[in-house]
Design a protein around this nucleic acid. Sequence first.
DNA 1: AAACGCTTTATTGTATACAAAATAATCACT
DNA 2: AGTGATTATTTTGTATACAATAAAGCGTTT
Lengths: 214, 214
Amino acid sequence: MSVYEKMRQALITGKYKPGDRLTEEALTEEFQVSRTPIRSALKQLEFDGLITPLRRGYVARSFSRKDIRQIYDVRSLLEGYAASLSAIHRTDEDLDNMYAANAAFYSTITEQEDNKIEHIQAILQKNHQFHQAVIRASQDPHTEDLIRKVVVLPLVFHSFFWFQQRELEQSFHLHEVIIAAIKDQDSARARSAMHEHIYQGRDRVLEQLEREKG
Amino acid sequence: MSVYEKMRQALITGKYKPGDRLTEEALTEEFQVSRTPIRSALKQLEFDGLITPLRRGYVARSFSRKDIRQIYDVRSLLEGYAASLSAIHRTDEDLDNMYAANAAFYSTITEQEDNKIEHIQAILQKNHQFHQAVIRASQDPHTEDLIRKVVVLPLVFHSFFWFQQRELEQSFHLHEVIIAAIKDQDSARARSAMHEHIYQGRDRVLEQLEREKG
DNA sequence: AAACGCTTTATTGTATACAAAATAATCACT
DNA sequence: AGTGATTATTTTGTATACAATAAAGCGTTT
């Protein structure tokens, strides 16, 4: 695992908390490499939007409620668009991938592992793989690239929320709707279902935030 | 001007042509700095999508017709979305900026400078400033950031085309429509006018490409 | 005691040497 | 002469020393 991947993981899992200062020197200590690869990793993380550049160095980025809302909204726009393209371009192989990814998602969410952190990670990963399968089928690498930039929100913001069984099953169901629309080459429906799916995720996150802060 | 900006300029203006190999050593010669800032600039240009990473080093990126089409399409989506947000959030100051930017655009296109390269650059710059004014008014830094990634197409692809007076005036007119819709807080109209405007740009580029290649 | 300027320290920017790895070139062998 | 393995060369990855600059600390002045 590269330094970049390790730091990314640390930011996403919350090991570095928003506002934490990240100095090159300290990171060389932590990862036992020189400043050169650290600098490279920091630059990439800046691009990902996970850290904020200061006049001197970086801090782990903090996300306001407004940030989260805006990020989810534009993500919904882009993934909806990708889904509509997929409905046009999908091959049989693409459909197989989506079915397989959603089946894997289902078996993970029905595992009933008492919300252990590994279980949550597994669910998030399977969910991600489903979305990737849809995005890939769009055959549009540029859109794919933009979406990647917009799904990097730290785990804190989408982990401990929607892990009510009912909501997981709702996600599974919407995945099915999305696949069906793409199969039927109904691009308007694919787009709208994807929009809806992501907005539901957004709302859960925002509700949870409301509960925490207020 | 930083090394990054110089290299970016060189790529956009076509000094480095698609497929040209970019080695760190050669660039240290050219810019008379060490490899460290060169590496930093290359990484940034990779994020911008202006260069393609190889197993060893980079090449100046080449854009296929398909690439151009897909990039313009998703740009239209994003800028249309930004325009619709602007219609909701715009302040009087935002409107002033848009009017001013479009007025500057108009006086530049009516200068009749016989399509000198500086004139073309000036037109592109004024056009860019208008778009920035609209995007800014959206108050959505994340969308703004995504759009930046998608307007970096080298100059070659959008310079010598739409410099027919008639088409420039068409652009000016659509700018006016966009501003009016934003002023009226008619977000659907703002979005659709912006879509249309960018698609027109896309089509001119694609037509020109058709003419060139055969 | 607050504010200003100076000195010190911390931290990044740059250059460069060396290690590792990929590509190119060479030579031996068939 | 063509092919494959081996060596040489090019090129990037990494470490580190030094320079430049920003931030912090400190004392002096008002």
